[in-house]
Simulated scan of single mutants.
Amino acid sequence: MSLVLSVNIGRPLHQSIPRRRATGIGKEPVAMISVADPGRKRIEDGAGVSGVAGDFIGDGRHHGGSEQAVYAVAVEELAYWAEELGRELPPGAFGENLTTTGIDVDAAEVGDRWRVGSAVLEVTGPRVPCATFAARMGEPRWVKRFAERGRAGAYFRVIEGGEIRPGDEIAVARSGSGIDVPTTLRAFMGDADAARTVLAAGLYEGKDQRTLVKTAARA
């Protein structure tokens, strides 16, 4: 059965890398989260906007907003990395809002819809690793290692707002887009063939589309 194992939100945490500022990447389990469409990426009161009420986002220019409203990672993936790194990785360790069990998050395709709790979420793409994530993990070559693994978890937009709790079942309606999370991650990490595949599906627009077009043009 596909379930939510944990729901997590981040409080402001200061770290010096990549710049000395607060980040919400260190998330902790809570009893319930309320999700809603936060609108476009922006900065309000010095922070970004999350689709999860009470979830802090330090870098509002690059994170948060409708297309990155909620982030999910499978606990099975946390277990893989815990064994690889020889350290405990509890729910929320990767900065995810939803820690799932019994579902292959990375097999999700862009456009898939998840009904979970009283909310409906839609897959928008992968989590692209960044310097803040690398600093959080404190592991050598973390961005490269994480990207090469290719199982980055999925971002979602909120189609219907609602509440999500641990133990809620996840019901998936497939989009049939054929563009899974690992393919999209490779595209955004600079793989020209993957970028052409994603572009051909016509799933992205704006800045994301321009990034893919530039990557796809490489020989």
Rank of each mutant, 00 (worst) to 15 (best):
A93K: 14
V213F: 06
T184D: 03
G202D: 00
A82E: 07
S50R: 00
E96M: 01
F94N: 12
V128A: 06
M32N: 14
A131Q: 12
I103A: 02
G190L: 03
R21E: 05
G26V: 06
R87P: 00
I170N: 02
F94L: 15
D193V: 15
T183E: 03
S175A: 11
A219Q: 09
G95T: 13
A53T: 12
G167M: 00
V70Y: 01
V158L: 05
G65D: 01
G111I: 07
G58P: 02
E122R: 14
D112R: 09
G86K: 06
R151S: 13
D55H: 01
L199M: 10
R19L: 10
G51V: 03
E28I: 09
S118L: 03
D112H: 08
A173T: 11
P29V: 15
V116I: 15
L3Q: 10
I159F: 07
A134Q: 02
I57W: 03
V172E: 02
R115H: 15
F188G: 09
P129R: 04
L3I: 11
L121G: 15
M32Y: 12
E139S: 04
D55R: 00
R19F: 10
L185I: 12
N97K: 02
M189T: 14
L185G: 12
R210M: 15
G24H: 01
E84Q: 13
G54S: 08
G161L: 05
A173F: 05
R210W: 14
V35F: 11
V213S: 07
R115L: 08
G202P: 00
D55S: 00
Y155C: 09
D59E: 14
F156A: 06
G117M: 00
E169L: 09
C130A: 05
G48T: 14
E88S: 13
G65I: 01
F188S: 07
A201M: 06
T99V: 11
I57H: 08
V7S: 07
K214G: 11
